[in-house]
Measured scan of single mutants.
Amino acid sequence: NKFNKELGWATWEIFNLPNLNGVQVKAFIDSLRDDPSQSANLLAEAKKLNDAQA
């Protein structure tokens, strides 16, 4: 379904953000699993944090 596809894509993108540490990645992935409907918002937050830590 739509959420599974978005969840998978967001998970892959978060895993590939180079400036996040393992704890941050795990926290974002756990949040995605808790509420897949928020995948776009969580991915945006992860990208912002990644950019801030560059």
Results as ranks from 00 to 15, higher is better:
S39R: 07
N21A: 07
Q24C: 02
P36Y: 04
A44V: 10
F3V: 09
D34G: 10
A44E: 15
D34Q: 14
F15C: 11
N50C: 02
S39V: 15
Q53E: 04
L20Q: 00
L32P: 00
N4C: 10
L32D: 00
A54H: 09
A44N: 09
S39I: 15
N41Q: 13
A10F: 15
S37R: 06
W12F: 12
R33K: 12
A54E: 11
D35F: 07
K47H: 05
K26D: 06
D30K: 13
R33T: 10
L42G: 01
N21I: 04
E13D: 03
Q38L: 08
S37E: 05
K2T: 13
A52N: 08
L43R: 03
E13T: 07
V23C: 07
L32M: 12
S39H: 12
D35I: 03
N50G: 01
I29L: 14
F3P: 12
Q53D: 02
N4T: 08
F15L: 07
K26H: 07
R33V: 10
W12C: 08
N41F: 13
I29P: 00
L20F: 00
N19M: 06
A46F: 05
D34A: 15
P36L: 04
L17W: 02
G22E: 14
F15S: 12
N50K: 01
A46R: 00
I29M: 08
N50F: 01
S39E: 07
N50I: 03
A46L: 03
A52Y: 11
S39F: 14
F15K: 11
L49A: 05
A40F: 10
L42R: 04
D51I: 09
Q24K: 00
N4K: 04
D35N: 13
G8V: 13
N21C: 06
I29A: 04
N16F: 05
L43E: 02
S31D: 03
P18V: 09
N41L: 13
W9M: 11
I14Q: 04
K26M: 13
S31L: 14
F28T: 00
N4E: 14
A54W: 08
A10W: 13
G22Q: 14
Q24D: 04
V23F: 14
L43T: 03
K26Y: 06
E45M: 12
A52L: 12
W12Q: 14
D34H: 15
A10M: 10
L32W: 05
N19F: 15
K2G: 14
A10C: 04
P36S: 04
K2Y: 12
A40M: 14
K5R: 07
A54F: 08
N21F: 05
K47A: 04
A44F: 10
I14E: 03
A44D: 12
K5H: 14
N16C: 10
P36D: 02
Q24M: 02
Q24G: 03
V25Q: 08
A10L: 03
E6H: 07
D51T: 08
E6Q: 07
N19Y: 15
N1C: 13
L20C: 01
A40H: 12
A46H: 01
Q53P: 02
A40N: 09
F3R: 01
W9E: 08
T11V: 15
I14A: 03
P18L: 05
D35C: 05
T11W: 13
N1I: 07
I14G: 02
